[in-house]
Amino acid sequence: MSTQAGTVAFIVEQMAAAGSVSARPMFGEYGVYCDGKIVALICDDQLFVKPTNAGRVFIGTPEEAPPYPGAKPSFLISADGLEDADWLAELIRLSADELPMPKPKKPRAK
């Protein structure tokens, strides 16, 4: 089962106050970026946020599950969490602040 484009648009809109938020297709699902950092995955119409200490403190007792078979567990955000735009944006902002910037890609050899 793959994620519907409407679900991705809704989740990105709910996170908009966190910063520069976008989603990109990735391995048949979607990666969610905030200020240039990958902070979450949307798989099977569910939001999985990368685990951080700040995110864990903010959520309290997060539900954790892997976004796909073989993946490390991430914070699985419930439907209630998706509906609360202020709460979701704050979680994403806190997570993005704690995550490192991606390493620059090496140029391809010609």
Results as ranks from 00 to 15, higher is better:
residue 35 D to G: 07
residue 25 P to G: 04
residue 78 S to Q: 09
residue 80 D to C: 11
residue 81 G to H: 09
residue 80 D to H: 12
residue 41 L to G: 08
residue 105 K to Y: 13
residue 99 L to S: 06
residue 39 V to E: 03
residue 77 I to A: 10
residue 16 A to L: 02
residue 58 F to D: 00
residue 11 I to Y: 07
residue 95 S to W: 00
residue 104 P to R: 11
residue 37 K to C: 08
residue 54 A to M: 12
residue 56 R to T: 15
residue 24 R to E: 10
residue 85 A to M: 13
residue 31 G to V: 06
residue 70 G to Q: 01
residue 34 C to Y: 05
residue 69 P to S: 07
residue 96 A to E: 10
residue 105 K to S: 15
residue 8 V to M: 03
residue 23 A to R: 01
residue 43 C to R: 14
residue 106 K to H: 08
residue 17 A to G: 07
residue 71 A to E: 05
residue 82 L to W: 01
residue 40 A to H: 05
residue 46 Q to F: 11
residue 93 R to M: 02
residue 31 G to P: 04
residue 22 S to I: 06
residue 16 A to G: 03
residue 62 P to L: 04
residue 95 S to G: 06
residue 11 I to S: 00
residue 74 S to H: 15
residue 74 S to N: 13
residue 105 K to M: 14
residue 26 M to T: 11
residue 61 T to H: 08
residue 9 A to I: 05
residue 92 I to V: 15
residue 21 V to I: 03
residue 11 I to Q: 03
residue 25 P to A: 07
residue 73 P to D: 12
residue 53 N to R: 14
residue 14 Q to I: 00
residue 39 V to H: 03
residue 103 K to W: 10
residue 11 I to T: 04
residue 74 S to W: 14
residue 107 P to A: 15
residue 100 P to S: 12
residue 28 G to V: 09
residue 2 S to F: 06
residue 51 P to N: 12
residue 45 D to M: 09
residue 68 Y to G: 03
residue 53 N to P: 05
residue 23 A to S: 04
residue 84 D to S: 07
residue 87 W to S: 07
residue 32 V to H: 00
residue 31 G to L: 10
residue 8 V to Q: 01
residue 6 G to T: 03
residue 42 I to W: 01
residue 91 L to M: 11
residue 13 E to K: 10
residue 66 P to K: 04
residue 83 E to L: 11
residue 45 D to E: 13
residue 65 A to D: 11
residue 46 Q to L: 15
